[in-house]
Structures are given as C-alpha cells and as structure tokens.
Design a protein around this nucleic acid. Structure first.
Length: 473
RNA sequence: GGCCCCAUCGUCUAGAGGCCUAGGACACGGCCCUCUCAAGGCUGAAACACGGGUUCGAAUCCCGUUGGGGCCA
C-alpha cells in the first residue's frame, strides 16, 4: 500500500492570484483529488515588506471562487511561514550542530567585490567558502550557509523532465539563514515541505533550477525526497512572461470580465495538459482524467479568444437559473433596472446563451429586455422605416392587442399569417418589430423577445416606434 | 555571461519508430440552415525549426545548430 498523496500550493501574498498561480493550484488540486490525497494551502509570507493581509484574503477569495478547496491551511494556525520561524530555526541549528551548515561572516560588500572580480575574469561567481574553512565564532554576526559537497553531481528526477543533472561545480554553499536571522526562500520551502510531509512537489518550471539546491538540503537534513514535477509556464502572445501589460492576469479580474469558474478551470487545465481530442471538461471530468503523464513540457501561450470560446461553451451548458443568478450583479453594475424576477431573468438568459461569450456581453445584450431602447440604430431604420412603416406598425399593434396566446409558437404563426396576408416576407415584419423592441436589427428570435416582454410592453414599444416614424415624416 | 529546460498549423494540442498523404480545437475564409444576430452542420487554407546520424522505416531515438524560456546574480 503506497503512502497517501500530499501536495501543496504555496502562494506569496504579494499580489493577486495570477493565472499561472491558479493553474499551479489547479494541477496540484486535481492531482490530490484524483489520488484521493491531501491538498495543503500554505502562505509564503516571509517577505514581510511585500506581503499584505489584503492580498492573502484576495488569494483565498480567488481559490474559493474556483472551488479549489484545501484540506489543510488557513485559517488553521501554522500554515503561514511567519508563524513557523521557530521550526526553521530549529532545523538550522540542527544542521549547524551536525556540521552540515556553517557560519559565514562575509558582508554583502565583500561578496560584491568578489563577484565583480569574477565577472571581470568572465568566471561564474561561486562563494569561495573561506568561512567554511576558517570557522566563525557564534558571537560574531553571521549568516548560515549549507556546506554542499565540493565535487560530484546532484540529479533531479523530474516526472516531466526526466533526469536533470547539475554539477556541484555550479552550485554554491547557499545561504540558509541571513545575518539578520531571517530564513531564505529555498530553506523555508524545504523545511515546510518536509515537515508537512509533502510527497509530490508540482510547481512551475521556473523552479527547476532551484531544485538541486533544495535536494542537497533534503539530504543534509536526512529526509527522503518528494517526487518533483515541473510543469510548463504560461506565456503571453509575445512569448514573454505573462504580466499586467498583457492585460488581465489576475484570476479575480477574469471573474469580473464575466468568466465562469467552470470555464477558468477548463481552460487552465487544457493549457499544458490534454486528454485526447476532448476540449470541454467538467470539474469531475478533470478529476477523473487528470494525470501528470499527459502534462506537456513546452510553455503555453495564453489565448483570450479560446478562453472566451470555452467560457461560451459553459454558458451554453449551464442551467439558465444558475446563469441568471450569476448575471444579476453584472446587470446591476451596468446600471440597468432590476429584472422582474429571477425566473423571468432565466427566460431572458435562455435566449442569450447562444450569443454571449461572457457575462459582461450577456448583460449588454440583455439591456433591451430591462428598458426600452433609448435610440433606434440609424442603419436599421434607414433600411426598414420606409413609406409603409407607419401602416405596418398600426397593423401589428392592432393584431397584437387582440392576441391571446403569447407563446413563441403562436406568435410566429400570427406573424406568418399576417405576412402572407399582406403579401410580405416574414423578415419585413420581424425586423420592424425588432427595431421597435430592441432598437436594432440583431437580437434573439423576435417571437421569444415578444413573449418574454409580454403584450403591454411590446405594444407600448411598437407605439413608441410608430410615433417616431410619424414624427420623421 | 554561466548553468538548466523547451521546440508539431498564428495559438492550445493529438502523436510514446511503421496506424501520419500528421488528427482535433480556437481564430480566419467559403457554403448550408435561417425572422436578424448568433448557435449549428459541411468545407477550405494552415505545422513536424534546421542539419547530421541510428534504423528496412523517424514528427517520434541520438548529436549539433538556431530560436525561445527559466534560474543565478
């Protein structure tokens, strides 16, 4: 029986959760759920100057929105690095006592000078290890360095990259604890992963180069190595790291753009991972099919167009009631009058599902349902408000006022009979109605629209349009 | 600069030596459907970075070049 899987996602609260982080979180979460393991959330806030509580809350909010629930982590104490300094100190002291780490009194100035000399000679700077030889008394101010083997190799066995070999000649006696007593990033990560019994470290490939250092630290500490999986990164269209100048990058910003969490998960999962030709995956599909073996190794370019397509697929699939509830805040934000009811809004949503790629687009398209058009599109009126428009509006108004059945089928029958009666094409009457009700010549099925608006509102808008036509003569 | 990683249509990818005249998806063009706009259906254009090997046979394995990315300062 193999050990239970334990994975972690360790964001730094120095900014909002960006899409790259969200995908790393997702892959870890999927791996944990697929293997019925444990998913740990850890807040890496050792950089106190840049970490804020506000960002921490934002991170948690984004994760909750995506539904990436954690089995261990905040608000339980002990999952923020600032709460764990005693643990780092204890491990550092043990390494020192065992002779696997040593005190170093070299100042940053000394090191800078050495670095410059090395650069001038076009050599790679490595810490020469003077203090390792000399020994520094505890009474002097000092940093703590890991004593790594001077020769040989460290091999990182990576699930995605295979065996990656690093020569110790390229590695430093790196700093575990700074002179001011604060532990460094790489040291904290190792101690945390070890004490949290993490079995699989799944993270961005930008961490691959740090891995040999960490491996050496695991070995010095005498702990078994976790399985490493370095996953490809997400790039912008210009193949550089995705950043703010490329547009929205934070998870919550996509929520505000009207992206659904289902779509976000789906799109992010397909960036670097695949399962045959399948494009649309539910949360359950992802858990069932996710595996590290089908994660690629090349970096992936983030494509908003495809993302919106995936979002549209989810808009089409999700029930109207759910969408209506999600849409409501977007209507409010657009300054539109409140819908008659949530059920009524669900009917509206059903007519818009095929047309809106985001909830923002859907809110725009829903506007005419909530208030009459404040203007009529000039191109549309130029084409359809010809001589007989007044007469035709009069006929439509008269017929609709006496119409009993307001379901789309009955309305379509009415329009077809009427068109045939007048020797017209259906499109003529349909577009006249559409202009009156929506102000434009593009909208959902006009029979659906009339049905949802109801008789009084429809007739009122037809009369208003007729009046404008009359006034223009 | 040193070290490490990566390389299939514009983009996401399928492809684990013969199933590949390289498949799917987004975007783009055409046609069909049609009350408009969409959605949908059909269809078109579009890729194995380059050069050497290995092999009866390579997109798939090896080496090099080029390009991109990352880490370290």
């Amino acid at each position: 029986m193999s050990e239970p899987v334990r994975v972690r996602f360790p964001p730094s609260p120095t900014g909002h959760l960006h899409v790259g982080g969200a995908r790393t979180a997702l892959f870890n979460w999927l791996f944990a759920r697929h293997h019925r393991g444990v998913y740990v959330l850890r807040i890496e806030d050792t950089d106190r100057s840049r970490s804020t509580e506000e960002y921490t809350q934002s991170l948690l909010e984004a994760l909750r929105w995506l539904g990436l629930d954690w089995d261990e982590g905040p608000p339980t104490p002990g999952y923020r690095q600032t709460e764990r300094f005693d643990i780092y100190r204890a491990h550092a002291e043990r390494l020192l006592a065992e002779g696997k780490a040593y005190r170093c009194r070299c100042t940053p100035e000394t090191l800078d000078a050495l670095r410059k000399t090395a650069e001038a000679r076009k050599e790679t700077f490595r810490y020469p290890g003077a203090c390792r030889e000399a020994g520094v008394p505890a009474t002097e101010p000092h940093a703590l360095r890991l004593a790594i083997p001077r020769e040989g190799l460290t091999v990182v066995d990576d699930v995605n990259r295979g065996r990656v070999v690093f020569s110790h000649a390229e590695l430093d006696d790196w700093i575990l604890v700074r002179t001011d007593g604060t532990p460094t990033y790489n040291f904290c990560v190792v101690v945390d992963d070890v004490t949290m019994k993490i079995t699989h470290v799944i993270r961005g490939s930008d961490h691959l180069s740090n891995t040999p250092k960490q491996v050496l630290c695991y070995q010095a500490l005498g702990y078994p190595l976790p399985v490493f999986a370095h996953i490809p990164m997400i790039l912008a269209a210009d193949k550089t790291r995705l950043s703010k100048r490329h547009g929205a990058t934070s998870t919550l910003a996509f929520r505000d753009m009207g992206i659904l969490p289902e779509a976000m998960l789906n799109y992010l999962a397909r960036l670097g991972w695949s399962h045959g030709d399948q494009e649309i995956f539910s949360r359950e599909d992802l858990i069932r099919h996710f595996d590290l073996a089908h994660v690629g190794s090349a970096d992936a370019v983030f494509d908003l167009e495809k993302f919106k397509w995936v979002n549209h697929q989810w808009i089409k699939r999700l029930p109207a009631a759910r969408l209506a509830a999600d849409l409501a805040p977007f209507l409010e934000r657009a300054g539109l009058p409140a819908p008659r009811s949530l059920d009524w809004l669900a009917r509206v949503v059903d007519t818009l599902k095929e047309r809106a790629r985001t909830l923002v687009e859907m809110a725009e398209q829903a506007a005419f349902y909530l208030r009459p058009p404040d203007a009529y599109d000039p191109q549309s009126t130029a084409k359809f408000w010809k001589e007989q428009a007044t007469e035709r509006y009069a006929i439509l108004i008269k017929r609709l006022e006496t119409q009993e059945a307001m379901d789309p089928r009955a309305l379509e029958d009415l329009y077809r009979f009427l068109a045939a009666d007048l020797g017209l094409k259906l499109v003529d009457l349909a577009q006249l109605t559409r202009i009156a009700l929506t102000g434009k010549t593009a909208s959902p099925s006009i029979f659906e629209v009339v049905s949802i608006l109801g008789k009084p509102e429809t007739v009122a808008r037809l009369k208003a349009a007729a009046a404008v036509v009359e006034a223009r003569r």
